[in-house]
Simulated assay, not measured.
Amino acid sequence: MLATLLPHDWFGERSTWLLIVVAVVAIAALIKGADWLVDSAATAAYRLGLSKIIIGATIVSLGTTSPEAAVSVMAAWAGNPGLALGNGVGSIIVDTGLIFGLGCLFATLPADRFVLNRQGWVQVGAAALLAAVCYTVFIMHGDTAAVGRAVGMVFAILLVAYMVISVRWSRRHPYGEPHLMADTPTQTDAEVLNFEGDALPIDTSVPMWSLICWGVAGLAVVVLASDVLVGSATELAERASVPQVVLAATLVAFGTSLPEMAVGLTSLRKGHAELLVGNIIGADILNVLFVIGFAALAAPLPLVDEPGMAGRYIFLWLHLPTMLLMLGFMRLCIIWAGPTGYFSRWMGVPLVVGYVAYVVIQLVATAGS
């Protein structure tokens, strides 16, 4: 990360203040980049005749998870494969528990049954497959168990199949369910409602090439600004003598999902809540098939930490069960939202509380490392 590469005495006694300025600038850039990405994605969805939740579950989620996949693959290739596996599962927990949970608390999120009963089951199925593979391999090989290249190849093939079938599903479901469309005589199909009830028009005159350019630029700014922000915050925390284990369980884990957080909250602010739901579902799927799958192709991913490390089995008894519980509860929320077509705000409470509990348990379990 850029900020962590800066020498501690680069700016003398004023370096801390300059890092704070860097963090503030990164936050501003993150907001602006998310604006560009969300506006481009929403307009492109309308222009292409695709629902925004489909765009969120495919194109946007692929973009926000690509840098994470690159980092995980490089970590596995460089001899730190354990980081890749924990990063993928941890990101699913952050996406589902924290980001989707906060989204439910902040707004009444739409539940598109067509997508949630298709991509939603792929989301749960991919996570269940990963858990089944991990526990089976551990039972067979014990402390030497690892997710091997053969599993990575299977995940890569499933990723291609998922992208292909998502395109086919999108053609059968071009604009979303009727209750997500404009429902007043004064609104057109090119308008949406934000969570405060204000109409936000979509500019349909922008050329497609311009939308692509602004979307790519927005994604690049989101990714780079997230990296700089987390790096700056980590450097500041280290100077304040915050323990490394706390940094690893909070700033670093949260930082890998910061692009999804920025895109999700911006989607709510700009009235495109379907993008948040789609992005979370798509990111969860891609964290298994894309991030973990490609990392496993680079190098086998061990399930157990080195002997003597505190919480060396934490991936098996905490990370995987928490991931399954989070996704299982989200699946129940989808079922409960079926009759109304919207997620209730109370659904966010168990998810956010569960995420906080997960972080606390992780800190306690690794306190001796």
Score class of each variant (00 low, 15 high):
Lys270Arg: 13
Lys270Gly: 00
Lys270Ile: 02
Lys270Val: 01
Gly271Ile: 03
Gly271Ser: 07
His272Met: 04
Ala273Trp: 00
Ala273Gln: 11
Leu275Ile: 13
Val277Arg: 06
Gly278Ser: 04
Gly278Gln: 05
Asn279Phe: 07
Ile280Arg: 00
Ile280Gly: 06
Ile281His: 01
Ile281Tyr: 09
Gly282Ile: 00
Ala283Thr: 11
Ala283Arg: 02
Asp284Asn: 14
Ile285Lys: 03
Ile285Gln: 05
Ile285Trp: 04
Asn287Leu: 07
Val288Asp: 04
Val288His: 01
Leu289His: 08
Leu289Tyr: 08
Leu289Lys: 04
Phe290Lys: 07
Phe290Ala: 13
Phe290Pro: 05
Val291Ile: 15
Val291Glu: 12
Val291Ser: 10
Val291Asn: 06
Gly293Phe: 08
Gly293Pro: 11
Phe294Asn: 05
Phe294Lys: 05
Phe294Tyr: 12
Ala295His: 05
Ala295Arg: 01
Ala295Met: 06
Ala295Pro: 05
Ala296Tyr: 07
Leu297Cys: 15
Ala298Ser: 15
Ala299His: 15
Pro300Ile: 11
Pro300Gln: 13
Leu301Cys: 14
Pro302Tyr: 08
Pro302Arg: 09
Leu303Tyr: 02
Leu303Ser: 08
Leu303His: 07
Val304Thr: 13
Asp305His: 09
Asp305Thr: 02
Glu306Lys: 15
Glu306Phe: 13
Pro307Lys: 10
Pro307Ser: 12
Gly308Trp: 09
Gly308Cys: 10
Met309Arg: 15
Ala310Thr: 08
Ala310Trp: 08
Gly311Ala: 11
Gly311Glu: 03
Gly311Asn: 10
Arg312Cys: 07
Arg312Ile: 09
Tyr313Asn: 13
Tyr313Lys: 09
Ile314Asp: 02
Ile314Glu: 01
Phe315Trp: 11
Phe315Gln: 13
Leu316Pro: 02
Leu316Tyr: 02
Trp317Asp: 12
Trp317Asn: 12
Trp317Gly: 02
Leu318Lys: 01
Leu318Val: 01
His319Thr: 00
His319Arg: 03
His319Cys: 02
His319Tyr: 14
His319Ile: 00
Leu320Asn: 03
Leu320Asp: 00
Leu320Arg: 01
Thr322Val: 14
Thr322Gly: 00
Met323Asn: 14
Leu324His: 09
Leu324Glu: 07
Leu324Trp: 03
Leu325Phe: 13
Met326Leu: 11
Gly328Gln: 08
Phe329Arg: 06
Met330Ile: 12
Met330Leu: 14
Arg331Asn: 14
Arg331Phe: 12
Arg331Glu: 09
Leu332Phe: 14
Leu332Arg: 14
Leu332Gln: 13
Ile334Tyr: 08
Ile334Ser: 12
Ile334Phe: 10
Ile334Trp: 06
Ile335Phe: 13
Ile335Lys: 15
Trp336Asp: 12
Ala337Gly: 11
Ala337Asn: 11
Ala337Met: 12
Ala337Glu: 08
Gly338His: 13
Pro339Ser: 12
Pro339Lys: 09
Pro339Cys: 05
